[in-house]
Design a protein around this nucleic acid. Structure first.
Lengths: 214, 214
DNA sequence: GTTTTATCGATAAATTGATACTGATATAAT
DNA sequence: ATTATATCAGTATCAATTTATCGATAAAAC
């Protein structure tokens, strides 16, 4: 049973806020304060005080102390543990275009438990290259690669029209989760985790707000 | 007055779905069908039928026809217009690291009305380079640049600890919106639009789902 | 031309997430 | 030691979003 004393139904919104808490708490680590209260976090991060308390209660087993707040070090540890900083998932990336290369080179994912170990592309010009110390193989080699080295997370950075095909391939390769950067809904069997990253959506929101303002 | 016959309070969630509608509708353009119904879109995109209808009603002035649905071409046009594909916003990017370079090179933003015209970095090694035809200048030159060439959108891809400083600089340079890729809450005066892009959040969600499953 | 039916649009219900409120409690001040 | 107070945790309220229901209607079938 996956029974913990923490609620196992934390909303995606809460999850989204965790990295912000973490980043803020880390800025306090160098200072001399060792406790932080929910109202202070809330005002710094422009959130509601109760919301902060609920978020923290959901992911941390430690209780806050009246008049002082929460112990910063403990909070940092709990958030990191909850986020999965301690896990180590192997990932491969398919589509070594601009976006793909950037993600390959980006070093921030290790802090969130993801280790991208290789990339794949069907473009002969990309195959064989080395990006940030990671090799780019031909997509045809993907299945064999995953037989030898079990991969948990597949990252899709191919154009929208190719995304489903790559998705099918990744599922055949037995990945447990797919992180999809193409703006398309992928068809997947039950049990495979899909996380859509939607950069265009943010631009849409910006455009809308800009248009509203003027 | 910014009065249209469309509701001007479309939720962020709806906005987030629009790119998916658009991408799906475009796949139908090559086929021989010219009408699409809300139930079909819903099942393809794994959404609720009513939700699809509401989203479309919010952004399109055209009515759907019983037994047929919505005219695909009209929908595509309406979504594109709403998203702001037709606008042309000038953007600059600060922080020509891995992520920054990727965004510079990524060609998909034009389709959403954003044209990144230059990049800035304080690292001498990056200054002077050309990335995807766009020059990287020193951050010190940012203010002058924006005086000559008005910039609407500032993109922050610097490390978390430098983000606020760059944010202040961009505001001094009179940008109207800031697209922030650092996982920190930025302090800004009223009137400046902030859109946070939070790649770490997605990883958090994936990790959580993976942990739940096993 | 009439009937059947898929889909629409609108309204209502339910769910979810955010915010406000209240009593309890540990810390700090007197 | 006693009092005052900031903050916590839990409960209740409120707002927003999603989902369900229902009559109306245009297209298709007969």
């Amino acid at each position: 049973m996956s029974d913990k004393n923490l609620p196992n139904q934390v909303s995606a919104n809460t999850l989204r806020r965790l990295p912000y808490y973490l980043s803020y708490l880390k800025t306090l680590k160098n200072t001399d304060v060792s406790y932080i209260s929910a109202p202070v976090i809330a005002s710094e991060l422009d959130l509601n005080e109760v919301q902060v308390r609920k978020d923290l209660a959901a992911i941390s087993s430690v209780a806050g102390k009246p008049k002082k707040g929460f112990e910063i070090d403990v909070l940092i540890n709990d958030i990191q543990a909850y986020i999965g900083c301690d896990v180590n998932n192997c990932g491969i990336l398919v589509g070594a275009g601009h976006l793909g290369r950037a993600l390959l080179a980006y070093s921030g994912f290790e802090a969130y438990g993801l280790n991208i170990i290789a990339a794949f592309d069907s473009n002969p010009a990309a195959v064989g290259k080395d990006i940030a110390g990671k090799s780019v193989y031909h997509t045809d080699a993907l299945l064999d690669f995953c037989k030898k080295t079990p991969v948990t997370i597949g990252i899709i950075t191919v154009p929208a029209e190719d995304a489903q095909e790559i998705c099918d391939l990744l599922i055949k390769a037995n990945v447990k989760a797919i992180w999809n950067f193409a703006p398309v809904k992928l068809c997947t069997p039950d049990g495979v985790i899909i996380q859509n990253e939607n950069i265009a959506a943010s631009l849409t929101i910006i455009n809308k707000k800009l248009a509203e303002q003027f």
